[in-house]
Amino acid sequence: MTATFTPTIVPAIPPLQVGSFTLRSRLVVGTGKYRDLEQTREAIEASGADAVTVAVRRERLFDAQGRSLLDALPLDRLTVLPNTAGCFSADDAVRVARLGRDLLEQLGNPGSRWVKLEVLGDKATLLPDPQGTLEATRELVKDGFEVLVYSSDDAILARRLRDAGATSVMPAGSPIGSGRGVANPEAIAILLQVLKDPTHGGQPGFPVIVDAGVGTPSDVTIAMELGADGVLLNTGIAHAADPVRMAHAMRLACASGWLGARSGRIPRKLLGSASSPWNGTFVHIPGE
């Protein structure tokens, strides 16, 4: 009989506070690009996420109606985070945010209080438009939203977004859906220092969530090891050959990175350092 590997209990990972929201899971997942609604639901469950992003789109009034995403998701257990994906101007992003809020109010979901702001520069790169993003952040904060802002990994822009009242800044690891992971870890590390380190005017409790570009569990772990508070991803799970299995892997990777980042890694050395004692060896050692 084959013995089953039973891991020991993982130490508790504290919830993530994002504005007025307390998230049990530091992994936030999207609901797009799945084969069907059943797979969407199963993958979200496997990811452990208690917040999921959704998009606002035209009702298909003139063709056949099937089941909608709203029927498939356990809305009593999930906080829905509506996005402004596909917007290329601050004005359009504000319109879409207000529509999303109105929908979530009707559903009685707490997600009506927040929005994932995306103001994109163009359709090819899907990189954020910094100026439009900043304008929309100001407008939405004024309108009472808790704004989680999709941003580039530029630390100075991130600080401006925070100062404009953003609830969280969410730098892209790499372009949306690219699967290239954290392309510039040093830029993310600088951004984290600027936003979180009190010696640089930062606030340790200010939530930074790496959003976009994540392809593999190790990408999630790297983001968390850098000191991110959470990771938001969609395509890395939804387009994996086995999305449900990948969702489990991403959940574990997120926990792994969080624990690793707080366990005090060993210093890097150029040369080796033996794990077994030299004392008591009884063989010839070159050079001795």
Binding site: V54, A55, V56, L69, L70
Partner: peptide, 10 residues
């Protein structure tokens, strides 16, 4: 007039 709903998204 736009009538919109929530769909899968990232």
């Amino acid at each position: 007039i736009e009538v919109v709903t929530l769909v899968g998204g990232g």
